[in-house]
């Protein structure tokens, strides 16, 4: 049976090597710069429709990816750019999908919310809130069926956590001991609705208890804490002990999507998180105070990442629109 859910706190001592710290820094910064660029291209009309940025939440996916191994799967919502970059998908292909071009990961047919990679075991990119949760358990079902020890990372939001199909899935996942980690990215808002206004049981990590699923709340602005919690959850799943819930406390700095007037929270609230809890600055401080890197090292890294992002943006603008015949391809296998 499951252990009682609990909260874990901000890691006091880095549980990571210098190399790993620098890698975390690099990956989080890549996501941040990529998203800033995407926001800019949206403003120029080069990206259309919905575009949900991951800025502020970078530590969640970067920390969890640290415990994955080959064959592990991941699936998430429409807020998916960070997940794709963190699992090694090509920034150029992601950006070109955002601009709806031929070289995008879905040939321009999916857009910001719908990208996939068989190679990286990334199963999307889903627009219907809650719907990817049973899908993630289905990926885990396949692992169990095949008898491997892979784990399916299933990401969803605090708002999605209220959908009924999440609880249907919890029940079956524990009943059948499926190796799935339910990662609730609690950024405290579902569009304009704060968790306080959508539920009277705001601790989402305890919601698996009734089904026997252990859960844990993690500081999602601390990539090291996320890594530690992720490793524990992964060990649990790989050992055949069934699903695990991680409620990762995070924050989105930008609007829900590009057209969010953001009247539901104050500018000060956002600024306070940026100033005090920023996940990238957190690692930056550890790197500098631990003398793992100098200001110059980090500047050089920043420049390198800006280069990657600019190259992706240029690629995404130069790539042509998909051929008109593509309208009718890929409808049936």
């Amino acid at each position: 049976m499951a252990t009682a859910p609990k909260r874990s706190t901000r890691a006091k001592k880095p549980n990571a090597s210098k190399e790993e710290l620098i890698e975390f820094y690099r990956e989080m910064l890549l996501i941040r710069r990529f998203e800033e660029k995407a926001g800019q291209l949206y403003g120029m009309g080069l990206i259309g429709g919905f575009c949900h940025l991951y800025i502020g939440q970078e530590a969640v996916v970067v920390g969890l990816e640290a415990s994955t191994k080959d064959g592990d799967q991941r699936i998430t919502t429409y807020r998916d750019h960070g997940h794709m970059l963190a699992c090694g998908m090509d920034p150029k292909g992601v950006m070109a999908e955002l601009t709806g071009r031929k070289d995008g990961l879905s040939k321009g047919k999916g857009g910001s919310m719908h990208m996939f990679s068989k190679e990286k075991e990334f199963y999307g990119g889903h627009g219907i809130v809650g719907a990817n949760v049973p899908l993630g358990a289905g990926l885990a079902f396949a692992n169990k069926y095949r008898g491997n020890d892979n784990v399916a990372f299933t990401y969803f939001g605090d708002g999605a956590a209220n959908q009924g199909q999440v609880y249907e899935t919890y029940n079956m996942a524990e009943l059948w001991m499926l190796p799935v980690i339910f990662v609730i990215e609690n950024n405290q808002y579902a569009m304009g609705t704060s968790t306080k206004r959508s539920t009277k049981s705001p601790s989402l990590y305890v919601r698996g208890e009734a089904y026997g699923i252990p859960g844990e709340q993690v500081d999602g602005m601390d990539v090291l804490a996320v890594k530690a919690a992720g490793q524990k959850a992964v060990d649990h799943c790989r050992a055949g002990k069934g699903p695990y819930i991680l409620e990762v406390m995070t924050y989105r700095y930008r609007g829900h999507s590009m057209s969010d007037p953001a009247k539901y929270r104050t500018r000060e609230e956002v600024q306070k998180v940026r100033d005090e809890r920023d996940p990238i600055n957190h690692v930056r401080d550890i790197l500098l105070t631990g003398k793992h890197a100098t200001e110059e090292d980090l500047k050089a890294l920043d420049k390198e990442i800006k280069g990657i992002v600019n190259e992706a943006a240029q690629f995404a603008q130069d790539s042509p629109e998909p051929a008109l015949e593509e309208l009718y391809t890929d409808i049936y296998a």
């Binding site: 259309g48 709806g100 047919k109 910001s112 998909p322 008109l324 593509e326 409808i331």
Partner: peptide, 16 residues
């Protein structure tokens, strides 16, 4: 509309 799911790309969406 055309007998396809809606594509994202601007040129294809117009065509759909």
């Amino acid at each position: 509309g055309k007998d396809v799911p809606m594509p994202y790309a601007a040129n294809l969406e117009k065509l759909a």
